[in-house]
């Protein structure tokens, strides 16, 4: 009578033990968690896809979209390993991170050209000056600038319809800062959407339309839209990868970043992923229609990791009109 009961107890203990220990014995592959900007998402997604293929499932990567701000919130709470950011970390986010004891590496991964677009049937606009754009977009323009003629008397009296990024996006922050001179300062009577395809449809179907969004959406919809060359003081410059590369497309070229937590980098899978990111970024960035940095920028990032150069070179400010060359000089000072 006793024998079987003891055996069953032993069996129960064994089962219980295996249940408790199972996470150790049969651990799922480690996960690298990335979250943040929808602008950076396509790049990190492409890297994650290739990385998982290369590692054959030994490491898993998740990429979420919660906006640059939302991404930093999670990052500074220690919930994610990497934050995707379409602008440098802000003063407040720096404070949040330091309160939580999160230190980070700032790695620029690509450039984006914010592109200003009009309807293809618009035949009087080829280029615009920053001053003209400011005249259209500044808060005081609301109710006053309603027609193209109000901006420049040489243009026809056609109703001006505006399309722009939603107020929560890094794109909106950057555009307002670069054009109006103050982040988040914009007129309110325009069609705002976080979904750039809504803006594409709007501009494509409206003869008097003007709008702005990231370069990738313009390239994919070239037939429906007409890009405007921007005159930042040195003559009109078209939004092309070459003009971003040579620093002439100003002030609407912007760097985009990933931020890597110092603690997470001690985990071999995160280190492996970031290494892979920097070594494969150039072709992948190009493939998803962003502008890659020169190769030495990526090796410079790896150098920063190796020499443990943490922190940001922006000091909490969102600087506009930085060329790739200037950005690299700046990062080298870290």
């Amino acid at each position: 009578m006793k024998q079987p009961s003891r055996r069953s107890t032993a069996a129960a203990v064994a089962i219980l033990g295996s249940v408790v220990l199972s996470p150790l014995a049969f651990a799922a592959p480690p996960v690298v968690k990335v979250d943040g900007s929808s602008t950076v998402f396509p790049i990190t997604e492409a890297v994650a896809e290739e990385f998982q293929k290369a590692r054959k499932g030994a490491t898993n990567v998740t990429v979420g979209i919660s906006g640059t701000g939302g991404g930093f919130k999670k990052f500074c709470r220690g919930e994610t390993d990497i934050a995707n950011a379409s602008r440098p970390i802000s003063r407040k986010e720096m404070d949040d991170c330091s309160k939580a004891g999160i230190r980070y590496y700032e790695l620029p991964v690509a450039y984006d050209a914010l592109t200003v677009m009009v309807n293809p049937q618009n035949n009087f606009i080829r280029s615009m000056t920053v001053a003209e754009l400011k005249k259209i977009w500044e808060p005081g323009a609301q109710g006053r600038i309603n027609s193209w003629k109000d901006v420049n008397p040489a243009w026809p009296d056609q109703k001006l319809k505006l399309y722009g990024a939603g107020a929560d996006s890094g794109t909106f922050d950057y555009f307002t800062e670069a054009i109006v001179g103050k982040a988040k300062s914009s007129r309110g009577d325009f069609t705002a959407s976080e979904d750039d395809n809504v803006l594409v449809q709007g501009i494509a179907g409206d003869k008097g339309a003007l709008g702005y969004f990231g370069f990738a959406y313009y390239i994919e919809n070239q037939k429906k839209l007409k890009a405007v060359a921007i005159d930042g003081g040195k003559g009109p410059v078209a939004p092309t990868p070459e003009n971003v590369d040579n620093g002439s497309y100003q002030p609407l070229s912007r760097p985009i970043f990933i931020y890597v937590s110092e603690k997470s980098l001690d985990k071999p899978e995160v280190r492996d992923f970031v290494d892979f990111y920097m070594k494969n970024a150039r072709p992948l960035v190009k493939e998803v229609k962003y502008i890659p940095l020169p190769a030495k920028a990526y090796s410079g990032n790896l150098d920063h990791l190796a020499r443990r150069k943490i922190g940001t070179v922006f000091g909490g400010e969102n600087e506009t009109g930085l060329t790739i060359e200037e950005l690299m000089k700046r990062e080298a000072q870290l």
Partner: peptide, 24 residues
């Protein structure tokens, strides 16, 4: 916080013989 890019499946509930059902 559902994720947008996730290219792997959750651990299988029937992962090994010894422990029939796992809740990982």
């Amino acid at each position: 916080g559902a994720l947008t890019f996730i290219a792997f499946l959750p651990p299988s509930p029937f992962s090994n013989a010894e422990q029939l059902i796992s809740f990982e």
